[in-house]
Amino acid sequence: MTAPASANSHSPGRPFKLQALLFLYSNANIAGCALALAGPALLFAGAIGPGWLAITAGLYAAGWLLGRAGRQAPEIDRHIEDSLTVDEALRRLDALAAQVSPHLGPEMNAHLRSLRTSIAEVLPRLLGDRSHHDANLFTVRETVLRYLPETLANYVALPPAFRTTHAVKDGKTARQILADQLALLDAKMQDIVANVAGADAQALLANGKFLEMKFQQPDFLAGMG
């Protein structure tokens, strides 16, 4: 996961083919196509005549507007400020979890809750003792405050149909990739809690480097053409 990039289908940094795919999978286009099917149906039923193409186009436009207005992805904060207090950071994490929860499956939400438990235990030490372990634990703080929010924000920004049906990397959908990442991050954060409790500086450094490498690219569409 490198620097964050928007998953918006109109992002100028996206190749045209990818932008077209995101549009095709969007709720607006799916709703527009579904409503537009009524045009040919009405024609074959004899309810409309020569103007059926214009009526079909109008139905698509109406469906597109309804789909765009009805199921807009929420705006997710892509980072949590390092300057926040522990309580403030946890409240931001809780707000983030509440926003993304409807877009995740039961197992993914379970990992997110477990992550929150681990973070609540370890965050006071990470933010409260910056001088002693700052070099070793910087990457871990980044995972909590930036990598996780960015990854979840990029996932939620994808059209729901695209997340679950279109393979984006190694034959896996964005939903499968996020499930794998949350499971891995959950396990690593539990390791970090144990290492912090045991004052195992060497293990903390190893976990921090691992997370930096594994979660440095929060954009599910990076590299797609």
Rank of each mutant, 00 (worst) to 15 (best):
M1F: 08
T2Y: 10
A5T: 11
S6H: 03
A7N: 15
S11F: 06
G13F: 05
R14C: 03
F16V: 15
F16W: 14
L18P: 13
L22Y: 02
F23L: 09
F23V: 13
Y25P: 06
N27V: 11
N27P: 03
A28G: 05
N29T: 13
I30Q: 09
I30N: 06
A34F: 05
A38G: 06
F44K: 07
P50L: 14
G51Y: 01
W52P: 07
L53H: 03
A54Q: 10
A61Y: 03
A62P: 01
G63L: 00
G63R: 00
L65I: 09
L65C: 07
G70T: 00
Q72W: 00
A73K: 06
R78V: 09
R78K: 07
H79Q: 12
H79W: 03
D82I: 11
T85V: 01
A89E: 04
A89Q: 05
A89N: 02
R92T: 03
L93W: 05
D94N: 13
A97Y: 01
A97C: 09
P102G: 10
H103L: 07
G105Q: 08
P106I: 03
A110Y: 04
S114E: 14
R116C: 04
I119T: 08
R130C: 04
R130Y: 12
H133D: 15
D134T: 11
F138T: 02
T143W: 12
R146A: 06
L148W: 00
P149Y: 01
E150W: 13
T151I: 11
L152F: 06
N154F: 05
N154V: 00
V156Y: 02
V156Q: 04
A157R: 10
L158I: 04
P159H: 01
F162D: 13
R163K: 08
T165F: 08
V168W: 05
D170P: 03
T173F: 10
T173N: 15
T173C: 15
A174V: 02
Q176H: 04
L178W: 02
A179N: 06
L185C: 13
L185V: 06
A187Y: 10
D191Y: 00
I192H: 09
N195T: 00
V196M: 15
G198Y: 07
G198C: 08
Q202Y: 04
A203P: 01
A203Q: 14
L204E: 11
A206W: 09
G208V: 09
G208T: 12
E212R: 07
K214T: 15
Q217C: 08
F220M: 07
L221I: 08
A222I: 00
M224R: 14
